[in-house]
Write a protein that binds this DNA or RNA. Sequence first.
DNA 1: AAATACGTCAACCGCCTGGTG
DNA 2: TCACCAGGCGGTTGACGTATT
Length: 231
Amino acid sequence: MRKPCCDKQDTNKGAWSKQEDQKLIDYIRKHGEGCWRTLPQAAGLFRCGKSCRLRWINYLRPDLKRGNFAEDEEDLIIKLHALLGNRWSLIAGRLPGRTDNEVKNYWNTHLRKKLINMGIDPNNHRILHHSLHRRHENPNNSTSATSSGLKVQTDKQRPDAVKSNGGGDNDQTSDTGSCLEDEPCELPDLNLDLSMTIPSPGKPKEQKNFSEPNNIKEQELTPFRTLVLFQ
DNA sequence: AAATACGTCAACCGCCTGGTG
DNA sequence: TCACCAGGCGGTTGACGTATT
């Protein structure tokens, strides 16, 4: 049996109050992020350390953008999801001011439907069957423009694909990856620059993201530095 | 106006990874 | 090499607001 991350007996759960938010903000302003386990007690919060971390990262951080996603942000998320699968932290790392939770929620509530409406399977970014039928009825369309300006490319138009995660440890991701392997499949026209930039010193979170937490070693990402996959 | 269905999103949970002794 | 720990991640839940009947 795994130990709980903290003693849950004396911890609050559920929505955060303004006072709790303020305590957390004040504490982090004074002492900085980190040591989440001891933070609640030090800050006078009856919360689990993880809960504090999540609240700070997803809601209280001053550099958060919040608000609606711009169209170019949507496109970027779709493109990155086609490449990376459900690795929300990596995707969010490319969207300044956005959090993995926010990106994940936005994907699940908006973009999935949007892709489905566009005739694209959001799990693997292939054209859905009924859309293929329509395309067969109209063979002149080798690419189909989308409402968001994305083009859908046929397999023959792409160079050979790259495994998206280097290990296939994620079902969703491997599903996405499988799109790159065998059957004819459809992918957005990812004219996507994933070049790695050296993160600014003031943003350790992004640095962490770029250091690849999920089994993608730096070398494995190297081919993506100038992405040839979807050119 | 009330009941129900649906959509959104903050928050929680449990697992995984990397660092350290 | 192993065990432990803290932090991080993705999946899921549930509360709340809005739309529809």
